[in-house]
Write a protein that binds this DNA or RNA. Structure first.
Lengths: 340, 340
DNA sequence: TTTTAATACTAAATCGGTTAACTATAAATA
DNA sequence: TATTTATAGTTAACCGATTTAGTATTAAAA
């Protein structure tokens, strides 16, 4: 029932101008030569009545919203959820709130969402960008907005990004399978022109070719929300290629679907077909046999993302050249990729 | 570079007052008797220059922010992540943005976060509340804020909530284990006084007692972020109770940790110990043997939550008695709980 | 013809802060 | 003594919208 207090109420109750209150609350008392006596009185009263400045009014005037826009592919994907969680924590500690959304890798949806974020005056953007929004990002940057990309980057866009060494990761995983003696190694992934996906394919391909193996076997599945739409083509692929003895999956989601398909078809890893997936998580650790996975350093990714963004937020003018941070992955070798 | 357009710019360019622009853009042209001619001219120009009203200013004036605060226990938990995802989608469609945060079941953190949300003028709250914040919620409600709880509720607080029939769910699952012939059935869960946890314990206990079984075996683990802090006591418990032939886990997280511990100790389900967990997800579906789980209807939960909240947002005055929606779970019986 | 009503808008206050520019007094310096 | 400097604040404009109360013109009714 009690209406919210405004700065004017505080000012009136103390017989001081609201300017003075504002200066004190913003730590500019010294600079503005407000007496310690008054500062104390104001602080005491503010604490007593529990006054909190209206952040909307503040944002309207200052142009800063203390909000960060976070766009991931899908917040219900464990990889993105973990990163979102870590970013959230660090952001709150630094006085920033997170507004998030899932892009579904949909270019138009993402454009809309950027519009919404813009409209909300977010102070900075963290995103795992889909294809086709180079221009929108470019325009954000041109307008002076701090933008940090992660998981992938946009080749034409000069801004900071944090990602892992995708090429080496799949190269290494493929190499591991070859070392174990597997001969017909397939790579199954989402159809995508995103940098991380291109690199993952290339890493696999390079490994296969540079070791004189038969032509690479690459199966691309269209990105889809509906699990069955992913499993159906996967099922066909596995059935149609009985000679494949190892599969490297390009993401946790497709890896999980792959495991389901293999289970359905009664194929056991690694005897029937060895398995490695990108992104490590509980499903792979707990699977029988446990699944070898390329673990991304989620803490390090989140840490770097938020650190870089906070740097940019604190030093808007700095036109230091964009940082490209590439982190190492960890191939967690488990039974699913070990022969005998 | 181009500075953002304001309503004054539009007004000046068209030689019209900003009041008129505002009326037109807010669909009050008819009501305010603005000529169709002018309406058309304004709309055309606005579309051409791509003017978008500053939502901060709008919010400041109207007191509405078109933002919903979403507080979950932990966004990186698949159960909450899925629900968050579904709520997000529905919210965006209805013109609302989501600000979210993870409470970690920490009362003080949650109080802080409520303060932040309040400060941000969110229009409504969706939360899976921890214990001990009855007063804070009460105060939100008293101030006329729409609050919808889910996953659990607060006994003293009269507001809408959506949850599942926890008591029946664990009763039913326990019954299933007894029907299968298991004799020493334990219930392992997080130590908590939250309603959903109390109900889950009670469901288990009722089943055990009403069927004349030996005293219930209940192991409570302190809630913790760190997985090892959960696994250690679990390990001790399993080792110390070799006669247990079935375990019902109270949440997906503890269920997952439980599976890890059982795997470590070389205990196979269901021959060594049968397993059922609350919350169904990929880990359980893909486990060998697949794990019987109590699946919550996440879509229905999310749908009901957002529907109820939107109702309250659209009809603030309505002091209709709070709704308590209780949804059914689905016991997905898999090998881990089947004898022979 | 005067009054009333309808039409088509506008001026100015307001939301709750921040901030540039200014004032009034006392103390220090020239 | 006159001028400068430091101290301790205040006034009023501003951010960009919404909204109440009002104006000017024309048409209809009395």
């Amino acid at each position: 029932m009690k209406k919210k207090l405004s700065i004017v109420d505080i000012a009136n109750e103390l017989n001081v101008s609201k300017t003075t209150i504002s200066f004190i609350l913003n730590g500019r008392a010294q600079e503005k030569r407000i007496s310690n006596d008054l500062v104390e009185r104001v602080m005491k009263h503010v604490a007593e009545v529990g006054y909190k400045p209206n952040s909307l009014a503040k944002s309207l005037r200052t142009g800063k919203s203390n909000t960060i826009g976070l766009m991931v592919e899908d917040i219900s994907n464990p990889f993105f959820a973990s990163i979102a969680r870590l970013i959230e924590d660090r952001a709150y500690v630094n006085g920033y709130k997170i507004i998030y959304c899932s892009t579904d890798n949909d270019t138009n949806k993402t454009k809309d969402l950027i519009g919404m974020f813009r409209d909300r005056h977010v102070d900075g953007y963290i995103m795992a960008p889909p294809e086709g929004i180079e221009e929108d990002i470019q325009s954000l940057i041109k307008d002076g907005m701090p933008v940090v990309l992660f998981d992938r980057h946009l080749p034409g866009v000069k801004t900071d990004f944090i990602e892992v060494d995708n090429l080496f990761s799949t190269y290494n995983a493929t190499k591991h399978l070859m070392d174990q003696g597997f001969k017909n190694i397939a790579f199954v992934t989402f159809a995508s022109h995103q940098t991380q996906m291109m690199d993952r394919v290339k890493g696999y391909r390079d490994a296969i070719i540079s070791n004189g193996f038969k032509p690479p076997i690459i199966k691309e599945i269209p990105f889809n929300q509906d699990e069955e739409q992913i499993m159906a083509p996967l099922r066909d692929f596995v059935k149609a290629n009985p000679d494949i003895d190892a599969i490297l999956f390009g993401t946790n989601h497709i890896g999980t679907c792959g495991l389901k398909v293999l289970n359905e078809l009664g194929k056991k890893a690694p005897t029937d077909v060895a398995v490695i997936s990108f992104d490590d998580y509980d499903v792979f650790k707990l699977h029988s046999p446990p699944v070898t996975a390329i673990a991304q350093p989620v803490e390090a990714i989140a840490d770097n993302v938020i650190t870089v963004l906070l740097e940019k937020l604190n030093d808007r003018s700095s036109s230091a050249k964009p940082q490209s941070i590439v982190l190492k992955t960890d191939l967690r070798i488990r039974n699913s990729s070990l022969k005998g």
